[in-house]
């Protein structure tokens, strides 16, 4: 009985030490990537190649989801706002919720599952097939050659994707409320422009998506680099990338929102 209790407590301790060690390892890896990124920024062609795979190929999913999210927001917002006779405020509702929250967050979630998982699988498979070790043998640093370009491509493309998501969402909201339902067009845009502030709303949204880009890219490259070099290990790492980065996005979003919009009513 006592033995079982002790081994239970030991299990808890083991898990805590393990996860703390992993967190520290991830932080050290992150700093290593930052230190080694000078070469990849000098050879910018590598980053451009990765930008194609992470950014350009994510365009379709981001644009289409943005359009539909905006359309749904317009529809639901109109349903509620028309009860109070203020359906012209639907433009404000759509724009503010997209620019402040939904644009950065949903785009980052989609980005994590579309591009983050691909990065992890690619690096993990490179490790499993010992391509990374082979690079090391040839005195090519795999962190500088493989990891850093992917990280920077993620960081660069995320704010752009979030902005495109928001624009498509506003367009979707416009389509549903103005074109289909018939809210006054002038009121829709003027209410929106009066209530969306550049510094408070748009700039903060861009800062948010920048942080999400760092989080998703860092988690993706770390999970890939850290993956056990087996088929099972790579699949587990891919799953962990999506789960961890989704949780990180939502947690970071709360923290950033608390800092940015507190005291603004």
């Amino acid at each position: 009985m006592l033995k079982r209790i002790i081994s239970g407590i030991r299990g808890i301790g083991h898990r805590v030490i393990d996860s703390t060690w992993r967190l520290g390892y991830a932080a050290r890896f992150f700093i290593l990537v930052l230190l080694k990124s000078t070469t990849s920024l000098r050879r910018f062609g590598l980053v451009i190649r990765e930008l194609y795979f992470t950014g350009v190929l994510s365009l379709i999913i981001i644009l289409v989801s943005g359009l539909f999210v905006g359309m749904v927001l317009g529809l639901q917002g109109y349903e509620t706002l028309q009860k109070f006779g203020s359906e012209s405020a639907v433009g404000t509702l759509v724009a503010l919720s997209l620019v402040r929250e939904l644009g950065p967050v949903v785009a980052a979630l989609l980005f994590a599952s579309r591009a983050g998982s691909a990065i992890t699988a690619e690096i993990g498979l490179m490790k499993a097939t010992e391509q990374l070790s082979a690079m090391g043998m040839m005195a090519v640093d795999p962190v500088a050659r493989v990891v850093a370009p992917r990280f920077w491509a993620g960081v660069i493309s995320m704010p752009f994707l979030a902005a495109m998501f928001s624009v498509m969402g506003v367009f979707g909201g416009y389509l549903v409320t103005v074109v289909f339902i018939g809210v006054d067009e002038g009121l829709f845009w003027s209410q929106m422009q009066n209530n969306v502030d550049f510094r408070i709303d748009i700039a903060n949204g861009v800062i948010k998506s920048f942080f999400f880009g760092i989080a998703v890219a860092a988690i993706a490259v770390f999970e890939g680099y850290d993956a056990p070099p087996t088929a099972e290990g790579v699949s587990g790492a891919t799953t962990r990338t999506v789960v961890t980065s989704s949780l990180a996005i939502l947690g970071l979003d709360f923290i950033l929102t608390a800092f940015m919009f507190r005291g603004i009513s």
Binding site: I48, L51, Y52, V56, F160, V167, V170, Q193, N194, F198
Partner: peptide, 27 residues
């Protein structure tokens, strides 16, 4: 072609930011 697509992507992103700040916001 890859360079072209990435350039297109970046221009689209900058365009989206401009639309957000000029059309949606009150810059």
């Amino acid at each position: 072609t890859m360079d072209l697509w990435v350039g297109f992507f970046v221009l689209l992103g900058i365009g989206a930011l401009l639309i957000l700040s000029l059309k949606v916001g009150n810059l």
